[in-house]
Simulated assay, not measured.
Amino acid sequence: MGLFFQESKVKSTKPMIIIRISIAILMVILLIFGVIINSDFIYLRLIFILAGIGSILDSFETFFQLKNDKRYLLDLGFAGLWFTLSFIV
């Protein structure tokens, strides 16, 4: 697996894992509400905002754990993309 994916040397902390899982569960609940109850785009906007918040949390964690790695810039770029998509929808 290490051939295609870069294996992280530093593991994620337990509070960050819990926050990421809770954001993912909230995104799934919003998706179900958007499909079953309403077919309104406000739920899609909220999902994009939550994805942006998750990317920002990933970038902060990467910045504080791996100071020599520039991967946090990629995570911030994805956060900008998610927030831009939330404003377009």
Rank of each mutant, 00 (worst) to 15 (best):
L81V: 14
W82E: 04
F60E: 05
G77A: 15
F48L: 12
A51R: 01
D69W: 05
S86V: 00
G52Y: 01
I56L: 14
G80F: 06
F64L: 11
S55L: 06
N68D: 14
D69S: 13
A79E: 07
R45L: 13
E61I: 14
D58Q: 15
L66I: 06
S55Y: 01
F87T: 07
L81D: 07
I53L: 13
L74A: 10
V89A: 14
V89C: 11
Q65E: 11
F60A: 09
I47M: 10
F78H: 05
L74M: 09
K67T: 15
F83S: 02
A79K: 01
R45F: 11
F48S: 03
L74K: 08
G80V: 02
F87P: 00
I49G: 00
G54H: 15
R71N: 08
F83L: 09
L46W: 12
G80D: 08
G54T: 14
D75R: 14
A51M: 08
L44K: 12
I56K: 02
S59R: 04
L57A: 13
W82D: 01
G54I: 10
F60T: 14
S59A: 15
T84R: 05
L74E: 07
K67E: 08
F83T: 06
I56R: 00
G80T: 07
L76G: 01
L46M: 12
N68P: 01
F63C: 07
G77Q: 12
R71L: 07
T62V: 09
Y72I: 04
D75M: 13
Y43S: 02
I49P: 00
S55I: 00
Q65M: 07
F63A: 09
G77W: 05
L73Y: 10
I88H: 05
I53Y: 09
I53H: 08
D69V: 04
S86R: 04
L81S: 10
V89F: 15
G54L: 14
Y72G: 02
L50Q: 03
F83M: 06
L81M: 13
S55G: 03
I88W: 13
R45G: 08
I47E: 03
I56N: 03
I56T: 10
L74P: 00
N68H: 07
I56M: 13
S86C: 09
F63I: 07
Q65P: 01
L50C: 11
F83D: 02
L74Q: 07
R71V: 01
Y43K: 05
V89P: 04
F63R: 11
T84E: 10
I53E: 05
